[in-house]
């Protein structure tokens, strides 16, 4: 079957845009609409767009790790963010924030790290599930 040229070309422009947008969503998520979950979904759909326009095996090559590992690492990051307060003798998952806001990132703290974990987890899980369904023709 003849592949349309439109989709691969569009993907080449869309994919970086979507990935950047997903990080934007991740970072603004604490007090506004967005967050790790939504950001992760957008990033995963960018990756899946790539898989559809080229092939699932191309996405396998693109990913640095098995999606299962990505999901596991995401969970570990989120879990680790809960452990940080224990070093300050606060209960598990207490939010700890830095005093002065950083440039670009803004005011970050352990919830930001938690969100980052969710972001990575969602990318891993969604890509894992969809790649199970997708097969090369």
């Amino acid at each position: 079957m003849q592949r349309s040229i439109i989709l691969p070309v569009a993907t080449r422009f869309l994919m970086p845009l979507m990935l950047v947008f997903s990080i934007f969503l991740l970072l603004r998520g604490h007090n506004e609409v967005g967050g790790g979950f939504v950001g992760g979904l957008v990033a995963a759909s960018a990756l899946m767009l790539y898989a559809i326009s080229t092939s699932p095996s191309a996405l396998w090559r693109l990913l640095p790790l098995d999606p299962r590992f990505i999901a596991g690492i995401g969970l570990l990051i989120s879990l680790f963010s809960g452990f940080i307060p224990l070093f300050y003798e606060k209960p598990f998952m207490t939010g700890i924030w830095i005093e002065t806001p950083l440039p670009v990132l803004g005011k970050i703290g352990t919830p930001t790290l938690f969100d980052l974990g969710v972001y990575v987890l969602v990318i891993g899980v969604v890509v894992w599930i969809l790649l199970e369904f997708a097969e090369d023709e």
């Binding site: 299962r68 590992f69 999901a71 596991g72 969970l75 570990l76 879990l79 209960p91 598990f92």
Partner: peptide, 17 residues
Amino acid sequence: IIYPILLPLIFAIITVL
């Protein structure tokens, strides 16, 4: 008393890896 919840979670994640 949070460890009975966290321990299985940590090990579940490592098992997935």
